[in-house]
Simulated scan of single mutants.
Amino acid sequence: MKIYFTVAEANAMLPLVKLELEKLQSIKQQYRDKYEELQQLKDYHKKHGNLQPNSDPYFTLECEMDFLQLEGNTLLSSFELKGVQLKDIDSGLIDFPALLDGQEVLLCWRQGEDSVAHYHGIQDGFLGRRKLTE
């Protein structure tokens, strides 16, 4: 079953969507940081050796990364379950499927905007964005 949003419903959902988006952006940044740390640690051990027998110096970082990935996937699923389409995590681009004058469109919101005030056709993407008229 496809979920369609009115502009009012999309705007009412924005506080929760913003919160989950910010959490997802934070998780993504933490993952990048831990990945970089892991690569540096592996490079260090490749150059200098110093690995103790029966030790895994990467275990903790890899576990933390696995947990972040699980947490991120849970948030992604939360968007899907609401019927909201997360288009880009970094720029905070989110679409809400809607019907406008009998046509299927996507109400479009980008992080930093006060409310859902734009839409575009299903195939148009962000570049086809148009301002909603009251």
Rank of each mutant, 00 (worst) to 15 (best):
P15E: 09
L21I: 03
L24I: 10
Q25M: 12
S26V: 06
I27M: 03
Q29W: 07
R32W: 12
R32Y: 15
K34G: 02
K34F: 15
Y35L: 05
Y35M: 06
E36A: 08
L41E: 11
L41R: 03
K42M: 13
Y44H: 08
K47P: 04
K47I: 10
H48C: 13
H48M: 13
H48S: 06
G49D: 14
G49T: 08
N50C: 00
N54T: 02
S55V: 07
Y58R: 01
T60H: 12
T60I: 09
E62L: 13
C63F: 04
E64V: 11
D66P: 00
F67E: 05
Q69N: 09
L70C: 01
L70D: 05
E71T: 02
T74E: 07
L75W: 09
L76E: 04
S77F: 14
S77R: 12
S77A: 13
S78M: 07
S78Q: 10
F79V: 11
F79H: 06
L81I: 00
K82F: 15
G83M: 12
V84K: 03
V84D: 03
L86S: 08
D88S: 15
D90P: 00
D90N: 09
D90L: 07
I94L: 14
D95T: 08
D95G: 09
F96N: 07
L99Q: 11
L100I: 09
L100H: 08
D101R: 14
G102L: 11
G102D: 11
L107W: 11
L107T: 06
W109P: 03
R110S: 05
Q111H: 13
E113W: 12
D114H: 04
D114E: 14
I122E: 01
Q123G: 01
Q123A: 12
D124P: 01
D124I: 01
D124M: 09
F126I: 15
